[in-house]
Design a protein around this nucleic acid. Structure first.
Lengths: 221, 221
DNA sequence: GTATAACATGAGCAATAGCTCAGATTGACC
DNA sequence: GGTCAATCTGAGCTATTGCTCATGTTATAC
């Protein structure tokens, strides 16, 4: 490994002609391809450039260092995820709590399905860039939203510490769904996992047990 | 980075004299120290040897490669964790469900307190060794125990799919506690987080809302 | 005291990775 | 068709790291 350049590098040239824009696209696509198919160990700038059909020099004309390329990948991935979140936020104001929870979980599932393997590599294999990696920041924003919702719905819920409850709910959804992608693909696909999760969280937040969430399981006794 | 040796390496010499046993200890301690204090990037065999006050050649006399040294660190850490789990398993057969859940959570907290920083580095920074890393294996064993308990307590619970419920419960506890170590140290230390988690899981498993878990919160309305 | 095995040493090899730079090529505009 | 900037090229520099091996030192057995 050569010396790692300073973390916050000066931005490089911005592409102006179509030719160079195509180069940048090729590099980003190649980067994703290498990460997904061969993992972070194989993710070297030389290899990315080769796969992109571009010289290593070109890569460094648009990305000041390796981390900048990774950041761009993350930025694009997060942008795709965020798109769907806004719609959900609107729903959250009117719909019944059970539905809000259900939708939140489905939204989380959807975000894992955009590019599952890239998502996994970015959050598990890639070393943390700085102290705030992209996922931490994203989950923190979700936590804020959830807390706001809980506060707006105080009458429906049985929660004293909304901050703590929001924390537990967001980490739970994220962790269970994220791991289930690999470990419980069937329960995820069938909706059984989302059903159970919804039931758990609804009970937690309302202090009541509801049958509303049982959209799926025909099992029960 | 030099070529990475084959993954499963032939075992090296086992120390026979006190002198060499001390060498091995010094190496392992130095390894943990470097990992905890400077992170995985600084974890090079040369640096570990230097910190241990031992030549690089000695290190390779007892550890066939870098991964073997990491494995030994993990092995020791897991051994410390496992010790407390057995006691809990005994309790799980007789105690009320609420208490079993509470104890399980506390046990998980304890496992994160043995060497918090080492725990974090081993599970977040260190690249996965093989497809089964130590923590996945550990959590999988916990999942088995929980499922067994749920099946033995069918009368107390309202769970159709014990496998799915055990899955959700174990990932939830592990993820929430693990993240809370950094993100919610106060709520963890006060017990408030454990209270809320217990309430959530108990409600989930029994289908009833219990006040039993409210050992801590004097807040509630 | 000597032979043998256990143990320790550290210079340096081989591989590899991030990144630079001097120069070639291409395109836009007149 | 000439000019200048944008773009592209890739050999190779610099640095680092995992690990070996020839050689030296210490303990044990007799």
């Amino acid at each position: 490994m050569a010396k790692r350049a300073k973390k916050t590098a000066n931005p490089r040239k911005t592409p102006e002609q179509d030719r160079s824009r195509a180069t940048v696209e090729a590099i980003v696509e190649a980067a994703a391809h290498i990460l997904v198919k061969y993992g972070y160990d194989a993710f070297t700038t030389n290899r990315v450039a080769e796969r992109a059909g571009v010289s290593i020099g070109s890569l460094y004309q648009y990305f000041p260092n390796k981390d900048a390329l990774l950041s761009e990948l993350m930025r694009r991935h997060v942008a795709q995820i965020e798109r769907g979140v806004e719609e959900m936020a609107a729903l959250a104001r009117t719909a019944p709590l059970a539905e809000v929870i259900r939708t939140g979980i489905q939204e989380n599932v959807r975000s894992h399905l955009i590019d599952p393997e890239l998502h996994r590599v970015l959050s598990e294999e890639v070393p943390r860039l700085g102290s705030l990696d992209w996922k931490v920041a994203f989950v923190a924003r979700m936590e804020d939203r959830v807390r706001g919702m809980l506060e707006a719905r105080r009458s429906e819920t049985a929660i004293a510490d909304t901050g703590l409850a929001a924390y537990i709910v967001t980490r739970t959804v994220e962790a269970v769904v994220h791991n289930a992608m690999r470990e419980q693909p069937k329960a995820l696909a069938s909706g059984a996992l989302a059903d159970e999760l919804t039931r758990m969280l609804l009970g937690f937040l309302t202090g009541k047990v509801s049958a509303a969430a049982r959209r799926h399981s025909a099992a029960a006794e």
